[in-house]
Design a protein around this nucleic acid. Structure first.
Length: 750
RNA sequence: UGGGGUGUGGCCAAGCGGUAAGGCACUGGUUUUUGGUACCAGUAUUCAGGGGUUCGAAUCCCUUCACCCCAUCCA
């Protein structure tokens, strides 16, 4: 299950289970079948199916198919496929919003009968105008005055198909001047004479998302309706519909999380579509795309994607995850699963002059640290190929591979030494003449030669030619806008790579690690026995490349963001008078005086308490800091405690009956119950302990129990003072006088 | 500009008044016949900025700033 810390959604779910709000957790994954699923969908799938399974509930796969002009059955297949591929189970059926059209229609009639919905006949442009803007309120359509009977009749005829598209719509009667634009009489139904891929031609009206979604959730008994952040404003409609209809509890509630963004790619359906349609990529399953079909074709495993989704967490902050996180996940998964084989991408011929004949070398498919069995024979002969990069005439410092002076081991084979470099007319190296040491064979090496590395190679005679497709990030920009940011080198095709024969003849797997290079996948579509094709899934980490390019990646000194301070709104005359009185007469600091003076509720509460107890500073502090918090959430009249009680509380602090810490606890209590603070103190015995003699033994005990922290403290970690004070306070139930504890602890640890 | 959200290292992200979790990335080191893996170590005197309350603030209060979403008969 999950690791130590829960995300906010699981926290909510657990609370709801605990409080009895829900007995069962039912979620849903509700895509619109109008595009191919991408890794952002995977995140949503993992959240919805993951939460359901964590709490022994279930998750419905539901197609949100309310717009007949955009949706298609091929997308529902792709969506089903994606969920299944990721390893989740949607039970025995796929749900469709279109199956609920009759019920949703009935609910609409309910609303009309309650006079909470009306048929509007404004044009599209008029509706837009009437809606107003974010700063100006809108105005209601004249058609909103129609009678219930008229509305019922019109709605019925809309359904029957008596009107043309756009002639009428059904709207909720909410509030045309709502600050939330979504609540300005949202549309519930529109006329659409279109063929629906499932419902056929039965309907000529279709419900809007805001109306259909909450009802579909309700119909299915969803407990937690989890969607992305852009629907936050729609939550009000969601609640309005369910509440107004007075539906039986439990009903679903909506929660939102931030959608996934990954750098160097795009995630919106629109931009993805643009890439496919413009031919920038080969199709929806192009391995460079963040579509699930793309990752799958590239060779990513579902496990790696699910793991990635788990790792990135769930929160509400818009963020952009680094691709390296995804790359880590696929490497991590494949590392423990796939066979290692030898492949040469850019071959350089090596003739081993002192070798005659041929032999087969037995080699394991897996390295010592991967607990899997399996091996194959690698043919070896006089003529072999190595990677061009693995030989250098003038190597830089730290180069471990073959050079004129430096021998190298052929992986699983012998150590060779370079004798001669053959070049063409242009000076390009075309062949190496080398010798091998017969005593150096891997596993039975008695040569005593030390080499710095082992390189991949293939026998010239036995190697198979394969096509290898190397993929790089699709965009050169971290946050690409569009096609203009495309990386022109995102695809490199190597037609004549050479691979050891067992990979082709034995087919031990579909995914391989080509040693020292990366993970590769036999392309599920283009691969044939005559012409094998492999896709590069991801490269191995390459600390050599990193070193050689260190200068490029190293310096990125970021300028600290300059912070601009805005202007504070000026106080009006009355506020100024108060402010002067507070700072002058009462001796409050300007910040507290400022807060009080600007808020009428606060200042009158303050003055009321002040008339009971003459402790201007103490009262001001608690009113500004504690009472203010409560007043953010409710009216003065709703407060359970009174100004007089606050005065009582402050009095006890003033005469040191209680500490500030206890005062806060008391305040919390008063907020909830409205009980008198003196009474609570009496009942619970919260009088502060200031006698050092009583506190000392407690501190001694804590010091004895935490020798590590004592040592750290004495070594200079003074932050730990808080730890000791905290422990002491905890031990006394908060009653110890923190000032006394503080000085005592400081003393003892000196 | 009205409303709704969000700001914690290079990138994600815990934390909700008492020692700034964890992962990725990065830097050293050990192991290694993959410059891989694994393992060990290092990396935030500080939580968007500024004030305030408190013995003690990333957490509470005030204030400023930045970014995202909302004016589709899309979802």
């Amino acid at each position: 299950m999950m690791s130590e810390s829960k995300d906010f959604l699981r926290t909510i779910v657990e609370e709801d289970l605990k409080s009895g709000k829900n007995r069962e957790i039912i979620t849903r994954f509700p895509p619109e079948p109008n595009g191919f699923p991408h890794i952002g969908h995977a995140k949503s799938i993992c959240i919805n199916f993951g939460i359901a399974s964590d709490y022994q509930g279930h998750c419905n796969l539901r197609m949100d198919d309310t717009n007949p002009t955009k949706e298609d059955t091929k997308y529902v297949e792709a969506l089903k496929d994606a969920v299944q591929w990721l390893g989740f189970d949607w039970g025995n059926k796929v749900y469709f919003t279109s199956d609920y059209f009759p019920k949703i229609y009935d609910y609409a009639k309910e609303l009309i009968k309650m006079d909470k919905a009306y048929v509007d006949s404004l044009t599209e442009e008029e509706i837009r105008e009437y809606r107003g803007t974010v700063t100006e309120s809108g105005k209601r359509s004249k058609y909103a005055k129609r009678t219930i009977q008229e509305n019922l009749d019109l709605f019925e005829r809309m359904k029957k198909g008596e009107f043309k598209d756009g002639e009428h719509v059904l709207r909720a009667r909410i509030d045309m001047s709502a600050a939330n634009m979504k609540m300005r009489d949202p549309l519930l139904y529109r006329i659409r004479h279109a063929h629906h891929f499932r419902a056929g031609d039965e309907w000529s009206i279709y419900p809007m998302y805001d109306f259909a979604h909450c009802l579909s959730d309700y119909i299915e008994g969803i407990s937690h309706s989890i969607c992305t952040l852009e629907f936050e404003n729609n939550r009000d409609i969601y609640n309005w519909v369910l509440d107004t209809l007075g539906l039986e509890l439990p009903r679903p509630y909506q929660y939102e999380f931030a959608r996934l963004n990954i750098n160097y790619t795009v995630m919106s359906k629109r931009k993805l579509l643009e890439l496919v349609n413009s031919g920038q990529v080969s199709g929806w399953d192009d391995p460079r795309l963040p579509t699930l079909a793309g990752y799958r074709r590239r060779g990513y495993t579902p496990e790696s994607i699910v793991n990635f989704c788990d790792q990135i967490g769930i929160a509400k902050a818009n963020s952009m995850v680094d691709v390296s996180q995804l790359e880590f996940c696929i490497r991590d998964d494949l590392n423990k699963k796939v066979p290692r084989v030898l492949c040469v991408l850019d071959p350089l011929k090596v003739t081993i002059e002192n070798y005659e004949g041929s032999e087969e070398i037995d080699a394991s498919y897996y390295p010592h640290d991967v607990p899997k069995e399996g091996n194959r024979a690698i043919p070896f002969s006089r003529e072999i190929y190595i990677e061009s990069d693995d030989f250098m005439e003038n190597p830089p410092k730290g180069y471990y591979r073959l050079t004129l002076e430096q021998p190298v081991r052929l992986r699983h084979g012998y150590i060779i030494t370079c004798k001669e470099v053959i070049k063409d007319a242009d000076g390009n190296i075309i062949e190496i003449k080398a010798t091998y040491n017969p005593e150096s064979k891997s596993g039975s090496d008695s040569s005593g030669i030390k080499v710095k590395s082992a390189i991949q190679w293939v026998s010239a005679a036995a190697a198979k030619t394969i096509e290898v497709r190397l993929y790089d990030r699709l965009f050169k920009d971290e946050a690409p806008e569009g096609i203009e940011d495309i990386n022109p080198d995102s695809l490199q095709v190597i037609k004549n790579a050479l691979i050891e024969p067992a990979v082709i003849t034995e087919k031990p797997d579909e995914r391989f690690q080509f040693e020292r290079q990366g993970y590769f996948y036999a392309d599920p579509i283009d691969y044939t026995d005559e012409k094998p094709v492999f896709n590069k899934i991801v490269g191995l980490k390459d600390s050599w490349a990193k070193k050689t390019k260190a200068t490029e990646n190293a310096p990125k000194v970021q300028a600290k963001k300059v912070h601009i301070d805005g202007e504070v709104t000026a106080m009006n005359e009355a506020q100024k008078v108060l402010f002067d009185k507070y700072t002058g007469e009462f001796g409050l600091n300007s910040e507290v005086a400022n807060t009080l003076a600007r808020d009428e509720d606060l200042s009158s509460f303050y003055e009321a308490s002040l008339s009971v107890l003459n402790s201007p500073v103490g009262l001001a502090n608690i009113v500004t800091n504690e009472v203010a918090r409560e007043l953010k959430q409710m009216q003065v009249s709703e407060l359970k405690f009174t100004a007089k009680q606050i005065a009582e509380l402050v009095k006890m602090v003033d005469d040191e009956t209680i500490s500030n810490k206890i005062a806060k606890q008391l305040f919390e209590e008063m907020v909830k119950t409205g009980e008198n603070p003196t009474q609570i103190v009496e009942e619970k015995g919260l009088v502060q302990i200031s006698d050092p003699a009583k506190i000392e033994p407690i501190i001694d005990e804590i010091i004895a129990k935490n020798p590590d922290n004592v040592a750290k403290f004495k070594a200079g970690n003074t932050k730990l003072l808080g730890f000791f004070v905290g422990q002491a306070l905890k031990a006394t139930g908060g009653k110890a006088n923190p000032k006394v504890v503080n000085s005592l602890v400081a003393d003892k640890l000196k």
